[in-house]
């Protein structure tokens, strides 16, 4: 690994100034679980690491009953998965923050890093989309907010302009009778890159029998994380039945545009997009009805 300079920054303004000055020769550092590996392997070349962890907003995890959840871009997964607020209101976040990497990785890795790395297979993205997250970005021209589903351009590419960086995410307060889930398929049971990922959220009628709103997003089936609004739309106003779940899963499967690579084939990935969508929807529905809870390790209870 080539020697690289390091500078910690203490405010958003300072970060913007340093990043704007050095352009693409600098990169923000949060947990470093992608960046450091990429530098070591020679997949990326920069001169300056800009450590954004000293910026208070970047490490802030807070909930406001009006504004919702703020997740600073550098907050590590383990803090998110241990948050009682997250457990209560944002269950799909718990799913993804307990399955990214392994325990050591979760101690460092941040959602900001996972999103800005812009892998089509990023585990945090489908559920952040399911939770209607928006990205808060700061740059030389000031700040702007971007819906997460509009953040990605291609593999490794985002809408961030030169000098801009991701400050954090805002997730709205979930309505009543809301449930969400994220599932990932890998050949083994932990520490791997998704063959397919699926995030789903639902809002049910007070009696839990009808879907009032739904959002479905997929990972690893397109050049970017894929929001499939038509799959969620197909559920709106529908009774909660296996048939309606299967229809939404079918739409998600048809929307998937995967490639064949070492991790999976086109046919397998399309199939899994349907399987995982259906399963994630069932869990989201159970959570919306309050029939399933999540234990201290983020695993599902309430199953036989």
């Amino acid at each position: 690994m080539r020697a690289v300079d390091y500078v910690p920054v203490r405010s958003v303004e300072e970060a913007v100034a340093v990043l704007a000055e050095h352009g693409d020769r600098a990169a923000p550092l949060a947990g470093g679980t992608d960046l450091i590996a990429q530098l070591k392997e020679g997949h990326r070349s920069i001169d300056l690491i800009v450590d954004v962890k000293p910026i208070p907003e970047l490490m802030e995890l807070s909930y406001d009953p009006a504004a919702g959840l703020w997740i600073g871009g550098a907050v590590p997964c383990h803090r998110i998965s241990r948050s009682q607020v997250v457990r209560r209101h944002y269950p799909a976040l718990l799913d993804s923050t307990t399955l990214i990497g392994g325990i050591q990785i979760q101690g460092r890795a941040s959602l900001g890093g996972n999103v800005c790395n812009a892998s089509p297979a990023a585990d945090s993205v489908p559920n952040l989309i399911a939770h209607s997250a928006t990205c808060h970005v700061a740059g030389p021209q000031g700040t702007r907010t971007i819906p997460l589903e509009a953040f990605f351009v291609g593999p490794g590419q985002t809408v961030l302009r030169p000098g801009e960086f991701l400050v954090g995410f805002r997730l709205p307060v979930p309505p009543a009778h809301f449930g969400a889930a994220y599932l990932r398929f890998i050949p083994r049971n932990e520490m791997d890159i998704a063959v397919v990922g699926a995030g789903a959220s639902v809002v049910l009628s007070p009696d839990g029998q009808t879907v009032q709103a739904a959002r479905i997003a997929l990972g690893a089936v397109a050049p970017t994380p894929l929001y499939v609004p038509e799959a969620g739309q197909a559920l709106v106003g529908q009774p909660v039945t296996e048939e309606s779940i299967a229809r939404a899963a079918q739409i998600a499967r048809d929307a998937a545009r995967p490639i064949t690579d070492m991790r999976g084939t086109v046919a397998q990935r399309k199939h899994l997009a349907g399987v995982l969508t259906a399963r994630a929807l069932r869990i989201a529905i159970d959570r919306a009805r309050g029939t399933k809870t999540v234990d201290s390790l983020g695993r599902l209870n309430g199953h036989a």
């Binding site: 599932l183 398929f185 049971n189 399963r279 069932r282 869990i283 599902l300 199953h303």
Partner: peptide
């Protein structure tokens, strides 16, 4: 039982 069950295992029907 289930100590090693992942969320995907748990979602199996």
């Amino acid at each position: 039982n289930g100590l090693f069950q992942t969320s995907l295992d748990a979602s199996r029907r």
